[in-house]
Write a protein that binds this DNA or RNA. Structure first.
Lengths: 459, 459
DNA sequence: CTGAAAGCGCTAACAA
DNA sequence: TTGTTAGCGCTTTCAG
C-alpha cells in the first residue's frame, strides 16, 4: 500500500456525521432516527440545553455526533468531520508500518525524572538508588526512606523499557485471539489478564481474525516486544512454530485450539466428545436426521467436532446422507444464519440442527424466526459453547458448554509456571489439557416433528 | 499479603479436578455431570479411545480434566492437580509484585541475534545495518538486500525494547476498561486494537473492575511501560490526572465515561438524552410509574442517565415517588436481577422498568421469569446499551443503543492524532465527543397493565 | 552498606 | 553511502 495516500474508499455515501454546535442553549437536535417516533414528535431539546452548565469544571469543548444512517449505524472509516464544530479534521492515514522510516527529531529526550535525578537529589550513587527502589535487601532502611521520598517528590517513575532491556525480562505477555468480541475468548482475555496482573505482568492483546498472515505478523511483533510468554489461539497447523524458531525459550500456551507446533502446552475443550454428546442427546429424543453447522475445516476445533459428530452418527446408525455437515468460513452469526437457511432449503428432511460455533446459534435463531419455523416444535436446535445469554433466548438454547473460567485459569497458570521456572520447565514435556464440557439441556430440543415443515415463506 | 504462603482459601470442598490417564484405549469417562442423562447411560468411551492415535504428530502428553462440580463449574483457584497424570503440581503463588526483589542471575543474556551479529556477518557497520533494516532512504539497494538476507539467515528480530528506549517511543498504547467481558467494552477493545495495529502500535489491555486503586496502579504500570498514549474508561472523578502529572505529553482519550482530568479528550454516549428518550417512549405508551435501575452513582454515565431520567419524569409530570431510582454497586446481571426483584416487591405500582446498564437487562429478564411476570403484558422492560443478542431474547428487548463501532473508531482516531502530531495537538484544546444513540423499539414494551401483578410466587 | 563503571541493543549525529 | 561513536535508563558486578 502506498503510504501517504488518503484512503476514502470506505467512506459511506453521503457524510455520515452531522455535527451540532454545542453551545449551551437551544441547539435543535441533530437528525437522529427514531423508528417508533418519526420526526413529527418534538425533540427533547430543552433537556439537552439544560445539561451543559451542569458540570462547571468541565471546560472542554463539547461536540455532539450523530453516526446513524437510516436504521443501522455505519462504521465511520475514512470519514472526516466537517469543520463546523471542530477546528481540525480527523485524519485518516494508510498503514504506516513500524519499519517504515520516519524522521524522529533528537528532541525526544523524555522530561520524566530518571534514577540519575533521584541520585543527584539525594546525593547518593546510582546503584544505591536503584537498589533502594527495587527492594534489594542490602540497603540501610533510612537510606531507602530517603530515596523513596526523593523519588516521590520528583514524580519518578521507573522506565520499564530500560529495566526490561537490562534484565532481559519484559514482564509482559502476549495474547493472540481470533476474535475479541466473542465471549468464548473474552473470558480468556479477562481471566488471563487478571491472573497475570496479579503476578506483575502486563498483557499485550491482539486479534488475528483467523488470518494466518496476521497471526504470523502478530507473533513477530510480540517477539519484537520481547514478551516473556505467549498465549496463542492458533489458526494454522504451524501455530507458533515461528516463535520456537526465533527463541525457543519463550513459552507458549495454546488456548482453545491445537496446532502441531512443538514444545507448546495446549489447553483445549473436549470438542469431540461434546459433539458426540449432542448427537446422543438428539438421538435419545428420536432424531435420525441431524445437520451440523461447522466452521473452517483447518481449525483443530472444527476437525474434532466434526469427527465426534461423524463417529457418533455412525455409532447410532444414522443415515449418512441424512446428516449433512456444512463447513463455513467462520463461526460467526452470519454464517450460522446462512447455513441454517441452506439446511431448511436443501435438506427438508432434517429435524435437528447442531450449530457447532459460539455465535452461530444467534444467527440460527434469527433464520428460523424469519422462516416462521417454530423451535423446538418444528425443529430442534443445539448450540455449542454458547454464552449464558442464550438462557434468556427465545427459546432458551440447549447447548454444550465448556468451563471457560477454569480453562483460562489453567492457561495462565501453565504459562506463569513456564515463565517463572524456566529451568524445570525446559525439561518438562509439554501437556495437552483437555477439559470436559457439559450438555445443558434447555427448551430448544424436543422429539422430532411428525408434520411437514412450513414451506419457506420468509425472504 | 505475605509472600510465599500458599493460598488455598479458594479451594472448593472436595477436589475439583479429576484426572484421567490419557493412554490410548479404554479410559472410563471422568465424572461429568449430565443433567439430562444421569450416570445410567453408557459413557461414549469408545469415541474417546479412538481419538488418541488420530494425530500422529502430536506426541504431547494428554490430560483430561473435569472441572465440573454439581451443576456449576467452579473456579479452580488454588487447586492442585493430583499427581496421577501430571508429574508436577500447578503451583499457586501469592502476588509477587514487580517491585519485590528477586535474584536474577546474570546468565540472562538473550541468545537472539542482534544488530551486531548481522553487522559482523555482512562485514558492514552497525549504523548501516540499522539504517538498512529500518527503511532509512540513504542505503544502497544492494547493501540493503544483503543485510536483509543476513538478517533472515540469522533469524534476526529487532529488539523493540532497545529501540523504544533509544527513540523514546514505544509504539505501544494502553487500554484500561472496567470489564473485559462486557460487549460494550470488548467492542472498543476490538476496534481500537485493530486500528492501532494498522498503524504499527501494540495494545496493552487491562481491566480496573471499577476499582480506583486498581485503576491507579494500572495507569502507573502503563506509564512505566512508557506507552505512547492511553485509552481510559475512568472510574473516578480524578480519572487520569495521575498521568498528566507524571508526563503531560502522554495523550489520553476517555472512552464511555468522563472524568474531570484536564487535557484529555472524551468520547462518550449521550446518556442523558438516552434516558430521556426511554422515558418519553414509556410515557407515550401510557406509563406513569416507571422505575429506573441505575449503577454506581460515582460514574459519570450513571449521573447522566439519572439526570436524564429525572428531568424527563419532571417534564412529563410523573409522580416523583412513583418513579424510584435504584442505585447499585455495578451494572452487572446480578444487580439487574436483584434490583428487579426489589422493585417487584417494594414498588408494586410500577408498570415499567428502565434498566440502565448493559448486562442488567439479562438479570431483569431472569427475575421476571422467576416471578412469572409476563413481559410486556404485566410489565414493560427497557434496556440500555444492550448487545444485539437481546434481539433474540424472550421477548426481544426494547433498548437504547449507542453506535459503539463509531465511538471506538473515533477514540482510536483521536488518540492516533494526538500521538502522531504532538505539536499541533499540544495546543489544540481537548474535545468531548458526545455520540447520539437510538431507541430500538422491540417487543418488551407495551401499554401499562390494567390488572394486578401476580403476587410474588417465585423463590 | 555504598559508589563507580560496564554494558543491555539500538539509533542518530557526525565524520569520512 | 558508510563507519564510528555516544548514550537512552537501568541493573549488577566489583571495589571500597
Amino acid at each position: 500500500m502506498p503510504a501517504g495516500k488518503v484512503d476514502r474508499s470506505a467512506e459511506p455515501p453521503g457524510g455520515v456525521f452531522a455535527t451540532v454546535p454545542q453551545s449551551p442553549p437551544g441547539c435543535p437536535a441533530a437528525p437522529v432516527v427514531f423508528p417508533a417516533h418519526p420526526a413529527s414528535s418534538p425533540p427533547p431539546s430543552r433537556t439537552v440545553a439544560k445539561r451543559a452548565p451542569a458540570r462547571a469544571r468541565d471546560v472542554r469543548r463539547c461536540i455532539s455526533v450523530s453516526a446513524w444512517v437510516g436504521k443501522v449505524s455505519k462504521t465511520c472509516s475514512g470519514v472526516s468531520l466537517p469543520a463546523v464544530g471542530m477546528s481540525r479534521v480527523i485524519r485518516y492515514r494508510v498503514v504506516t508500518r513500524l519499519s517504515r522510516w520516519k524522521r524522529v527529531p533528537w528532541n525526544n529526550v523524555s522530561n520524566m525524572a530518571t534514577l540519575k535525578d533521584v541520585a543527584q537529589r539525594t546525593g547518593l550513587g546510582l546503584g544505591t538508588v536503584s537498589r533502594a527502589l527495587s527492594g534489594h535487601p542490602n540497603v540501610r532502611p533510612e537510606t531507602r526512606r530517603k530515596v523513596q521520598e526523593a523519588a516521590r517528590e520528583l514524580g519518578y517513575s521507573s522506565n520499564g523499557l530500560a529495566r526490561a532491556l537490562r534484565r532481559n525480562r519484559s514482564y509482559s505477555v502476549g495474547l493472540i485471539l481470533p476474535d475479541l468480541e466473542n465471549e468464548f475468548y473474552t473470558t480468556a482475555a479477562s481471566v488471563v489478564q487478571r491472573l497475570l496482573r496479579d503476578e506483575g505482568y502486563r498483557l499485550l492483546v491482539s486479534c488475528n481474525n483467523n488470518s494466518s498472515e496476521v497471526d504470523a505478523e502478530l507473533l513477530r511483533s510480540l517477539m519484537e516486544s520481547r514478551v516473556d510468554g505467549i498465549v496463542h489461539a492458533p489458526c494454522t497447523p504451524e501455530g507458533a512454530d515461528l516463535v520456537r524458531a526465533a527463541d525457543p525459550r519463550v513459552p507458549v500456551v495454546e488456548y482453545a485450539r491445537r496446532s502441531s507446533a512443538r514444545g507448546v502446552d495446549s489447553v483445549i475443550g473436549d470438542d469431540e466428545r461434546g459433539a458426540a454428546e449432542v448427537v446422543r442427546h438428539l438421538v435419545d429424543l428420536g432424531h435420525r436426521r441431524i445437520a451440523m453447522v461447522a466452521g473452517p475445516p483447518e481449525l483443530s476445533t472444527t476437525a474434532d467436532r466434526v469427527r465426534g459428530f461423524h463417529d457418533a452418527c455412525a455409532r447410532f446408525g444414522l443415515p449418512k446422507r441424512g446428516c449433512p455437515v456444512l463447513h463455513g468460513p467462520s463461526y460467526d452469526a452470519r454464517w450460522g444464519e446462512a447455513a441454517t437457511r441452506q439446511i431448511l432449503d436443501r435438506h427438508p428432511g432434517v429435524t435437528a440442527i447442531f450449530i457447532s460455533g459460539s455465535r452461530g446459534a444467534l444467527g440460527a435463531l434469527k433464520a428460523v424466526r424469519d422462516r416462521h419455523v417454530s423451535v423446538p416444535r418444528d425443529l430442534s436446535l443445539v448450540g455449542f459453547l454458547g454464552p449464558e445469554l442464550l438462557d434468556v433466548a427465545n427459546p432458551p438454547l440447549t447447548r454444550y458448554v465448556l468451563p471457560l473460567e477454569e480453562m483460562s485459569t489453567m492457561t495462565a497458570r501453565l504459562l506463569l509456571d513456564r515463565i517463572q521456572h524456566p529451568r524445570e520447565q525446559a525439561a518438562a514435556e509439554p501437556n495437552v489439557m483437555r477439559f470436559e464440557g457439559k450438555l445443558m439441556v434447555r427448551e430448544s430440543t424436543a422429539p422430532p416433528r411428525e408434520h411437514e415443515l412450513p414451506r419457506s415463506g420468509g425472504s
